[in-house]
Design a protein around this nucleic acid. Structure first.
Lengths: 211, 211
DNA sequence: GTCTATAAAGTGATAGAC
DNA sequence: GTCTATCACTTTATAGAC
């Protein structure tokens, strides 16, 4: 009926695909399920995309951006909150900074668990497809870069410096975050998650020293 | 041709299913692919199982047992190796015991990465199926119990005691192991994996004190 | 019990009218 | 551009011969 540009239709389909993947998994994200979610006809799908594989590839690329910006925006918000009151002489303890950062991440996962599950599945899916494998690696490079930035900020804010390259520490943080996500998704144990966060924050903080 | 008991056929199909899942993923583990791997006809499948879902359910239950016993056997082997020479007065450092245990686990993953990937996918799959969800949880309870046993052994061998309940420490170890597995499967970075192992071993060891 | 053949339902993709 | 209708194929599952 109404004319929609091909690019608009593509992004609409990608967003709908993410909804379907989150709700039912990658295997159940059929072209029919996706167009139903988007309120389009099946033919419109193939007008916008050459194949389902093409959409899945774009979806993987899309979620990498989305995840990165989502976490980044939360960081910025937290920074702004922090900046509203005068803390000129107050130096937060590094472990506390890391702890609150990881709690923010956990809240992010708790707010939309199925989305996080979709991220995991899409990574695993990409890892199986030779043509999509590089996207999975790109996703993790993004995570590492994001973690490195957060760790650098945390250190400078708490007046400390990392005793080993921040890139190395960031890999630890990403692995800890993965473990946190995976175990929480399985048993939804908030208490255990908080214990893991405390442990992670304290253990990582031990890798820094006063500036 | 040759008559095979239904139970034998079931277990043969389950083993073949695991091979297919490891090689091509859960979604591609079709009944046809599984019977081809097992060298059976399609009809034999439905003679042994009522449905594909029934096989997948049994597969999930099967891998839980298999993974547990596999890691446990490695532990026993390691214990035997350790017992061959006289170490009556030698007390290994806890961090070293944990480190070598995690290295053994990493070797286990490196020896058959696709099997480990299959385990991950089956857990995620079970988590989506309301009827299979409990199996995913059971799998992790098993992991936790296994980790708790290993941690208790490690502490007593090194003459230390855990400063918090071993069940809590075991959850940390499982999460660390998950993070190790996930990140290694993505980038296959052995050096980063070793750094994570060192970090984990040292950080966990800090949670114990001399007996 | 084990097979071949086929049914029944779902899938990705396309043709062709408008 | 967008639709309905349909093709070609794959999937799970079953029927029926042996």
């Amino acid at each position: 009926m109404t004319r929609i540009s091909a690019t608009d239709r593509r992004s609409a389909l990608v967003r709908s695909a993410l909804v379907v993947v989150a709700a039912r998994g990658v295997a159940q994200a059929t072209t029919r399920a996706i167009v139903a979610e988007a309120g389009m006809s099946l033919a419109s799908f193939h007008y916008a995309f050459n194949s389902r594989d093409e959409l899945i590839a774009e979806l993987v690329g899309y979620v990498v951006d989305r995840e990165a910006t989502a976490i980044l925006l939360e960081e910025v918000d937290a920074d702004l909150d922090h900046g509203t009151h005068d803390d000129h002489w107050e130096r937060p303890i590094l472990a506390q900074v890391l702890r609150s950062g990881m709690i923010r991440y956990l809240e992010h996962v708790r707010a939309d668990p199925m989305h996080e599950k979709a991220m995991l599945e899409l990574t695993q899916y990409a890892l199986r497809d030779p043509g999509l494998e590089h996207l999975a690696r790109a996703q993790y490079r993004r995570y590492h870069a994001l973690a490195a930035e957060a760790l650098a900020t945390a250190a400078s804010r708490s007046g400390t410096v990392w005793r080993l390259p921040v890139a190395d520490v960031s890999r630890l943080l990403v692995a800890l975050t993965d473990g946190l996500t995976l175990t929480w998704l399985v048993d939804r144990d908030d208490l255990a998650a908080m214990q893991l966060i405390d442990f992670s924050a304290n253990s990582l903080a031990a890798l820094a020293e006063p500036a």
